[in-house]
Structure formats: structure tokens, C-alpha cells
Design a protein around this nucleic acid. Structure first.
Lengths: 185, 185
DNA sequence: GTCTATAGCTAGATAGAC
DNA sequence: GTCTATCTAGCTATAGAC
């Protein structure tokens, strides 16, 4: 009869997220992760087959949370829902500076990975659904590309001059939101 | 009297670029780099203090090349210079799939790093100079964010559904180029 | 400036007892 | 399911001869 489990997969994912957010993905070792959970490294291999699987689970949990954050923000705003979604996305990225890049490093390699990503994007695609499925996807891609690109540059320090960063974000969101929601030419 | 040098810093950078583009940054080891140049690992330390310095030099060389590509494309086009720059940027990223992410991973940490980045962005900023320095910078940030975000998502496989990716890029570039070049409200 | 040799470290993962 | 112990593998970087 085995011992009662001291840790669960969810606890492992949560602890991994904490360590990555604190020290960066590069510095996450299986040993450090186990120690932070009060357990030895080999124990983790009873819950995940290897380190890659843990990182993958972290990735999925991030996409799920992002989807929730977006749909919540867009559902509750009294103003422009697109802008609300963009602002929430940016805030999510800033709240998860070191975790955020994980969302765009590994290529989705199975059906489940694609499903998770699509679910996260759903609130935005739905916003454009009046234009038809193809156009909605296209519009969602355009606005997502801008917002992701902006926060990606922001987080990596590409906007080194500082001044005017807020205005640039607002202008981009404003103009894209405006042109994307107006009827097709 | 020492032996004649078999390798130069430029050769090291070039070889490093080749290996990264082939196998990815993670798999670039000092030993593999040296071997590909026909020397032993310790020799590289006569040209660069450590591995980080080599990667930094690779990064700088990429920014320089990107700046050249942009200014060349924008200078020679007969159509929309903004669109030409965006297309050239995207092509550059596709031609350097594994190298491109390097441009947005490390934070610029000294004056030279910032200078290199600003130089690469100059062709685009210049395009908006008629609006004044502040507005030009803002507009350049908006269009760069979109293009970077788009290719970043493209390279990471975020557009898994495939169809309509070209149209999404064209639409984004088209609409941003149009609104950014029209007079401020 | 290149070489041989090696230090010194860190990492992911497994075997087998309990 | 957790533990101790260990394996294997890889890496950056340095010392010192030529």
C-alpha cells in the first residue's frame, strides 16, 4: 500500500507557475520545483512523465486563464468591448511577465493544444461573428497580432524611450477597433 | 610569436547564425560552434569573453541586417513604402525563423544595444517624420507592433487554421498604413 | 592563437527500498 | 507515492604547453 499523496498535479502546476514568474523559465529545474513543494525530485515523475509535460501543462493553464480574463472583461465593460479585451490582454501579460512568453514559444503539436488556443481566442472571434466565420477569424487575427506584438515588445524592453507608450497602445487599439468593426468595403 | 589566426570574430558570428538557424538557439553550444569552424572550443575565448557575448554579437548583426533590408525595400518600391517595409520585415522573419526570436528575448542593457535597435527602426520612423518627432515614434511603434506580433504568431504556429493568413496580414497593414498616414484628427 | 586536458558544475531521469 | 542514491549527459570556462 502506497503512501498518501503529498502533492497533486494542480499543485505542481501552480508551484511551477510561481517559480517561473519569479525567476524565469530558464531557471526552472525539476529539483527546485520539487523542493518548493516540500518533496524530492523523483516524486514529480509519478505525476508527469517528464519536465516538458509539466511546462506544457503550465502553458495550457495560462491559455485557459487568459480566455477567462478576456471573456470576463469583455462581458462586463460598459464601453468598447474590443478595447476592453485588448486592455485586459495587456494587463494579463504584465501580470505574468515571465510566464507570458511561454504562450508563443512552443508550437502547438496536438489537437488538445490547438483546442486550448482556440478557446482562449473565442471571446474575440465571437465579437466579429456578424461578419461571417472567415472574416471574423481574419479580424481577430489582426487585432490579436497587434496586441500581442505590442506587449511582447513592451515586455522585452523594445520601447526603450519610454514616453508615449500608452498613447501608442491606445491609438493602435482605437484605430483597429474602429476599422475592423465598420462594414467591409 | 603566436600562430596565425584561423578564425575571425565575423566568422564566428556567421557560423553561430548558421547553427542557430539550423538547430535553434537552445542547441547552440560553444563546442558545436567551434567544431563547425574547424577549431577547438577554447580558441573562441580568445575572440569573445564568453558565450553571452557571442549571442549578443549575433543579435546586433541581425538588427543591422534588418535595418538594411527595411531601408532597401522602402527605398526601391514604387508603391506604398509602409507596406513595402512591412512585407520586407515579414520576409526577413521568415528567412530567419529560428534567429528572429532573438531580437525580442534579451532586454537591451547598454547604450550600444539601444543604438542598434534605434538604427534598425529608423527607416520606419523617418517615414512618419512629417508628423513631428513624437507622433512619428508613436506611429512607428503601432505599425511595428502589428508586424512583429503577426510574424511572431505566425512563426510560433498560432495561426493553426491556415486559411486566410495572407489576407489578415494585408488587411492589417493596409488599414494601419492608411490611418497612420492620414492627418491627425 | 591554438591546442590538450580537465575542472567544476548543473541538469533530467531512473532503480529499488519502504 | 515518496524516498535515497546514483547514473548519464551535457555544458561553460580555465590552465598551461606549444
Amino acid at each position: 500500500m502506497g503512501r498518501p499523496p503529498k502533492i497533486s498535479p494542480d499543485q505542481i502546476i501552480s508551484a511551477a507557475r510561481g517559480l517561473i514568474q519569479e525567476h524565469g523559465t530558464q531557471l526552472l529545474s525539476v529539483d527546485a520545483l520539487a523542493t518548493s513543494l516540500g518533496v524530492k525530485a523523483p516524486s514529480l515523475y509519478k505525476h508527469f512523465p517528464n519536465k516538458a509535460a509539466i511546462l506544457r501543462a503550465v502553458e495550457d493553464s495560462l491559455f485557459l486563464e487568459l480566455g477567462d480574463v478576456l471573456s470576463e472583461a469583455m462581458a462586463t465593460t460598459k464601453g468598447d468591448r474590443i478595447a476592453a479585451g485588448c486592455n485586459a490582454y495587456r494587463q494579463f501579460a504584465k501580470d505574468h511577465q515571465r510566464l507570458y512568453p511561454l504562450l508563443f514559444t512552443s508550437r502547438p503539436d496536438d489537437e488538445e493544444a490547438i483546442r486550448v488556443r482556440l478557446t482562449a481566442a473565442q471571446p474575440l472571434i465571437k465579437e466579429f461573428s456578424a461578419f461571417g466565420e472567415t472574416a471574423a477569424l481574419k479580424k481577430a487575427r489582426v487585432i490579436t497580432a497587434f496586441v500581442h506584438g505590442f506587449v511582447s515588445m513592451e515586455l522585452s524592453g523594445a520601447f526603450h524611450l519610454g514616453d508615449g507608450v500608452e498613447q501608442a497602445f491606445e491609438e493602435g487599439v482605437d484605430q483597429l477597433s474602429k476599422t475592423l468593426t465598420s462594414p467591409e468595403r
